[in-house]
Every structure is written in structure tokens, then in C-alpha cells.
Design a protein around this nucleic acid. Structure first.
Length: 426
RNA sequence: GCGGUCGUGGUGAAGUUGGUUAACACUCUGGAUUGUGGCUCCAGCAUUCGCGAGUUCGAGUCUCGUCGAUCGCCCCA
């Protein structure tokens, strides 16, 4: 007998877990509403070119994409991240000309990356993200970080820190690139294969190498900071000043180089310092991208955004012992006793119309068994539709906490329950 | 993609140097005189030890493969 199970790196969100997912989603929606972000939903797969851009050297794009073709010639890819699709859509629908700038968008959905699964790292996972497109300002960068930070804080996470760095603008980047190439020119041959590739494609990422970390050439690497243009330096200072003003604590980490190649100037990462977060500690991360809109055929426009790993957020919340939403207790439990036909169902329907969370016993069971259900569902009140009562057009209503029980006319269901449920709050 | 650890019922888990009926706890289902629960008591719940093959008279216990989880690396949300 074959064992059917979820494919590697994927998981089912089980009914009891769905409540905490909805909690996260609700929190995101509310925050986006406060900040004036609108939701955008893009396809789960796109033309491969949308993700695989020229000169991109990231593993994500080169080795981890689920790419397929349905025999029509076009290569398609399950989205490994959200930004590319959003920018593609932004350009395709000419959003830059339809509304005031910046255009503020949020999205959430499943992303796919063919990596070796680990705790907090899955092949199908969910990201929530925002993109602020059209204007460039240090204040916008700060606001974007503030939104993410507030989300994580609202959720109750305490053991986190914000890492931030600047990659510089285009001019700074190319200057630094030249400096790095010069610095490593005599060492390339001794470095790992990845580094050889990085040297050619994107020298910046050499700094990220863990393999050659102790190589002599890695010891006194010229700093990016020295290659920054005055404009970029000032820009970064202003971002930090804005964060100070917002009282968001941060750490400047000059080693921080984001994985995606399209970032310019500000990059940031919010990581967990909780021991259980393991090696997958980034909760959300993002940065500014100057050339992306133009790359997709739009006008020269800058944008900034971040993506947050929803599985990780939930994982960390659990690790920190934060109480997450669960199935709500029910208000009313309708019992059936004897030959009462559809009466209990009718009563339950009336309760639901009145707005109470109502459970109803629909199959013959002993009173005892039904009371067990009442306890399990933590019902506040019980409606007993028994043969004796129904014959007299009556029902018995019992308040669980006070044990008070009354038998009333069928028509008095709502008012009696309303009174009982209300008095509990006192 | 690389290296390590692990995989017994709904859950947490015992399972000796391989030897007939796979502990224990919780949950769950039913019951303790047929209309009132949360306590207690009783009973039931794995033809089987992720899956497949091999070694053996005999394997949950050994070997190999495979699938999955997990930890570290890589990468990243």
C-alpha cells in the first residue's frame, strides 16, 4: 500500500492551525489598511524571464526555481519571490500613470524554492510583502521598515533585531565593484568555485563567502563605505535618522548583502535572536531597488519593499510562547433527546441567525455524551430539545456556568439566551 | 547541493545481547439501570513497528536501498 503524503518541503495547514494563520493574515491586512497599502494578487507562476534576469547570480534564481514548460515553447516558473511579479504587473498595467505616486501594494501568497528543507525553510512557503513604488526618499525606506517592524511587534515578538546597511547607488556600486576586482585579482584562483563565479558576475557577493572566510584576501577587504558617493552616504544617514525618530532600534551591519541582485542603497533584514530560530533566523527582509521598474519596461522609477516569511513568524511566535488564536468557544449547544426530528436544527439555525456560535447535535446520542461535547466545546449555554418539552412547544435552556436552568416557550429562545449570555459577562 | 542524527498507535513514548500474545500515560469511543456533563471506575482502540528488499530457524531490534523529518553548511523569508 502506497503511503500518500505531502511532497518534501510542503505541509498541510491543519484545521486547528488555520486560526493562527488567519490571525496573521488579519494582522497584516489591518496594518496595510492603516498605512494605505492596497492588495495585489499576481499569478503563482510567470514567464521564467520575469524571475531570471540578466546578470543575476543568486542561487535562488539559478538553482532553486521550479521551472516547467507545457510544451508550448514558453518556459514558466513557479514564483520564488513576490517582488518580480508585482513589478511586472505594475509596469504591465501602467500603474505609474494611473494613480498618485508612490503606488503602495501588498501581497501574500505561496512561494516556491527547491532547497533542502529545514525548520523554517520549506519548498512551498508563504510570504507577506509590501512594495512602495515610484518615489525615492529615506523617509519612505524608514516607513516601509516601520510597517514590518510594527507587524512583528504587534504580533508580540520581542527577541528580534533590525539589521541595516547600504549598498550604495549605481555609481557607488560600480566604483566598489572595480575596487573589489582589483583587490581580489591575485587571489581568485585560490578561492572556491562559487567565488570564482562571483568574481566574474557579482564581486559584491564575495564578501558573503563562508568557505574562504579565512583566506588571506578576505582579511583586509576594502569597505564598500569607502566607495559610496556623497549622495548615497547622505541618503543612508537620513534613513537612519528617520529610524531614530521612529524609535526603531537597529544595527548597522556592513556585512549585510541581500541575496537578490536588484537591491540598491538601503537593505535591511529583521532577524530573530531566539535560540530556537536556528539557522533560518530572518523574519523579514528587503531593500530598495532602483533599476527594476525600468528593467521591466517601465519608466525610471525606484521602489522599496520587503518580504516576510509567514511560517517563520508563526514558528517564532510559538517559540516565544505567544498565545495564538485557536478555534473560538461556542456560545450555544443544542441538544436533541428522543424523537424530536428537525427541531434541534431549527433552533440552532435561529441561534446562528442571532449571531451566536452554535453547535448542534444531529445524530442520536446519550445526554451524557452530548454534555461531554458541551464541555469540550466550552459552550456557554445549552438548549435541550427533548421530547417532553417539544410536546408542549417548550425547550429547556441551561446556563453552564451558573447551572441555572429554565423551561420556556419555543418562541422565547432568543430572548432567554440573550439574557443568559449577557449575564455571564457580569 | 554537502555532512550528521532520527522515523514504533490520534499524541508523548517503553521496547533487554534479534526469540512466542508490541509496556506505560494521555486522547478518543462505549459503558457504570434507559433525560443532565466536567471527578472516579470499567471496557475497547497498532494482524504491526515510514516503505521495500536482504541476512537469519526467527527482526521493531542487524545490512542495504528508498521516502520523510531534523541539525549544521550553503542559501534565504
Amino acid at each position: 500500500m502506497k503511503n500518500y503524503q505531502t511532497p518534501r518541503g510542503t505541509q498541510d495547514v491543519l484545521p486547528e492551525e488555520s486560526y493562527r494563520w488567519q490571525q496573521v493574515e488579519t494582522a497584516m491586512r489591518q496594518l496595510c489598511r492603516l498605512y494605505g497599502y492596497d492588495e495585489i494578487r499576481t499569478p503563482i507562476f510567470e514567464d521564467t524571464d520575469v524571475f531570471k534576469r540578466e546578470n543575476d547570480s543568486s542561487d535562488m534564481v539559478n538553482k532553486e526555481m521550479y521551472t516547467f514548460s507545457m510544451g508550448e515553447g514558453d518556459s514558466l516558473t513557479l514564483r520564488p519571490e513576490g517582488t518580480a511579479g508585482v513589478i511586472r504587473s505594475f509596469v504591465q498595467h501602467k500603474m505609474y500613470g494611473r494613480s498618485e505616486l508612490p503606488v503602495k501594494l501588498w501581497y501574500k501568497g505561496e512561494m516556491f524554492r527547491h532547497e533542502r528543507p529545514q525548520k523554517g525553510r520549506y519548498r512551498q512557503f508563504n510570504q507577506f510583502g509590501i512594495e512602495n513604488i515610484g518615489l525615492k526618499s529615506p523617509l519612505i525606506d524608514a516607513e516601509v521598515i516601520a510597517l514590518g517592524y510594527q507587524l512583528v511587534k504587534n504580533f508580540g515578538l520581542s527577541q528580534i533585531k533590525v539589521l541595516i546597511n547600504t549598498l550604495g547607488d549605481a555609481a557607488s556600486r560600480s566604483a566598489y565593484r572595480a575596487v573589489l576586482k582589483e583587490h581580489f585579482k591575485d587571489a581568485v584562483e585560490e578561492l572556491c568555485p562559487d567565488c570564482k563565479r562571483r568574481y566574474q558576475q557579482n564581486p559584491l557577493r564575495l564578501l558573503d563567502c563562508k568557505v574562504d572566510r579565512d583566506h588571506w584576501s578576505m582579511q583586509h577587504v576594502p569597505s564598500l563605505q569607502d566607495s559610496l558617493t556623497e549622495a548615497s552616504k547622505t541618503y543612508f544617514k537620513e534613513v537612519l535618522a528617520a529610524l531614530d525618530a521612529l524609535k526603531i532600534p537597529y544595527e548597522v551591519d556592513e556585512k549585510l548583502v541581500r541575496g537578490l541582485d536588484y537591491y540598491t542603497d538601503t537593505v535591511f533584514e529583521v532577524v530573530s535572536t531566539h535560540p530556537e530560530s536556528g539557522s533560518q533566523s530572518a523574519v523579514f527582509a528587503g531593500g530598495r531597488y532602483d533599476g527594476l521598474v525600468e528593467y521591466f519596461g517601465g519608466p525610471e522609477m525606484s521602489g522599496v519593499g520587503f518580504a516576510l516569511g509567514m511560517e517563520r513568524l508563526i514558528l517564532l511566535a510559538e517559540a516565544e510562547g505567544i498565545i495564538l488564536d485557536k478555534k473560538p468557544d461556542c456560545d450555544v449547544y443544542v441538544m436533541a433527546l428522543g424523537e424530536v426530528g428537525e427541531v434541534p436544527l431549527e433552533l440552532a439555525t435561529r441561534c446562528r441567525k442571532a449571531g451566536w456560535i452554535t453547535e448542534c447535535n444531529l445524530v442520536p446520542r446519550s445526554l451524557k455524551a452530548q454534555f461531554k461535547s458541551v464541555d469540550r466545546r466550552k459552550a456557554k449555554a445549552v438548549v435541550i430539545a427533548g421530547e417532553n418539552e417539544i410536546q408542549n412547544h417548550q425547550i429547556t435552556i441551561k446556563h453552564i456556568l451558573t447551572q441555572r436552568q429554565v423551561t420556556v416557550d419555543l418562541t422565547q429562545l432568543e430572548e432567554t439566551l440573550a439574557a443568559m449570555l449577557k449575564e455571564e459577562g457580569e
